[in-house]
Protein backbone atom coordinates (compact mmCIF):
# COMPACT_ATOMS: atom_id res chain seq x y z
CA UNK A 1 0.00 0.00 0.00
CA UNK A 2 1.54 3.25 -1.14
CA UNK A 3 1.23 6.28 1.17
CA UNK A 4 0.17 8.30 -1.84
CA UNK A 5 -2.92 6.16 -2.20
CA UNK A 6 -4.02 6.60 1.40
CA UNK A 7 -7.28 8.32 0.55
CA UNK A 8 -8.31 5.66 -1.91
CA UNK A 9 -7.06 2.85 0.29
CA UNK A 10 -9.50 3.49 3.14
CA UNK A 11 -11.72 0.41 3.32
CA UNK A 12 -15.47 0.99 3.18
CA UNK A 13 -15.89 -0.73 6.55
CA UNK A 14 -13.44 1.68 8.12
CA UNK A 15 -15.23 4.59 6.53
CA UNK A 16 -18.57 3.42 7.88
CA UNK A 17 -17.26 2.75 11.39
CA UNK A 18 -15.68 6.19 11.37
CA UNK A 19 -18.99 7.65 10.27
CA UNK A 20 -20.74 5.82 13.13
CA UNK A 21 -18.35 7.28 15.71
CA UNK A 22 -18.71 10.64 14.07
CA UNK A 23 -22.51 10.46 14.27
CA UNK A 24 -22.38 9.47 17.94
CA UNK A 25 -20.71 12.75 18.87
CA UNK A 26 -23.29 14.88 20.74
CA UNK A 27 -22.50 17.96 18.71
CA UNK A 28 -22.94 16.06 15.48
CA UNK A 29 -26.12 14.47 16.76
CA UNK A 30 -27.58 17.92 17.46
CA UNK A 31 -27.14 19.02 13.88
CA UNK A 32 -29.93 18.37 11.36
CA UNK A 33 -30.03 14.99 9.68
CA UNK A 34 -29.64 16.62 6.28
CA UNK A 35 -26.43 18.36 7.40
CA UNK A 36 -24.95 15.09 8.66
CA UNK A 37 -25.86 13.25 5.48
CA UNK A 38 -24.45 15.99 3.29
CA UNK A 39 -21.19 16.04 5.20
CA UNK A 40 -20.71 12.29 4.97
CA UNK A 41 -21.50 12.45 1.28
CA UNK A 42 -18.76 15.03 0.87
CA UNK A 43 -16.47 12.62 2.67
CA UNK A 44 -17.01 10.07 -0.07
CA UNK A 45 -19.70 7.88 1.46
CA UNK A 46 -22.57 6.67 -0.69
CA UNK A 47 -26.21 7.09 0.32
CA UNK A 48 -26.29 3.42 1.20
CA UNK A 49 -23.25 3.69 3.45
CA UNK A 50 -24.64 6.79 5.13
CA UNK A 51 -27.90 4.98 5.90
CA UNK A 52 -25.90 2.06 7.24
CA UNK A 53 -23.87 4.31 9.50
CA UNK A 54 -27.01 6.05 10.74
CA UNK A 55 -28.60 2.71 11.59
CA UNK A 56 -25.49 1.40 13.32
CA UNK A 57 -25.13 4.54 15.41
CA UNK A 58 -28.83 4.62 16.21
CA UNK A 59 -28.98 8.26 15.19
CA UNK A 60 -31.18 7.91 12.14
CA UNK A 61 -33.72 10.30 13.61
CA UNK A 62 -33.59 14.06 13.52
CA UNK A 63 -33.06 15.04 17.14
CA UNK A 64 -33.32 18.74 16.47
CA UNK A 65 -36.96 18.24 15.53
CA UNK A 66 -37.92 16.39 18.72
CA UNK A 67 -37.68 19.37 21.05
CA UNK A 68 -40.17 21.81 19.69
CA UNK A 69 -40.92 25.24 21.12
CA UNK A 70 -42.78 25.10 24.40
Amino acid sequence: TSPLDMENAIPREKLISTAVKFLLNPRVHQSPLATRKLFLKKKGLTDEEIELALQQSGTATDESQSSGPS
Binding site: K14, T18, A19, K21, F22, R27, V28, S31, F39, K43
Partner: peptide, 16 residues
Protein backbone atom coordinates in the same frame (compact mmCIF):
# COMPACT_ATOMS: atom_id res chain seq x y z
CA UNK B 1 -21.95 27.59 9.86
CA UNK B 2 -18.37 27.32 8.70
CA UNK B 3 -17.09 26.60 12.21
CA UNK B 4 -19.44 23.66 12.50
CA UNK B 5 -18.21 22.28 9.20
CA UNK B 6 -14.62 22.66 10.40
CA UNK B 7 -15.48 20.85 13.63
CA UNK B 8 -17.05 18.04 11.60
CA UNK B 9 -13.98 17.78 9.42
CA UNK B 10 -11.59 17.62 12.36
CA UNK B 11 -13.72 15.11 14.22
CA UNK B 12 -14.04 12.86 11.20
CA UNK B 13 -10.34 13.07 10.41
CA UNK B 14 -9.41 12.28 14.00
CA UNK B 15 -11.48 9.10 13.84
CA UNK B 16 -9.74 7.82 10.74
Amino acid sequence: FASQEKFFQELFDSEL
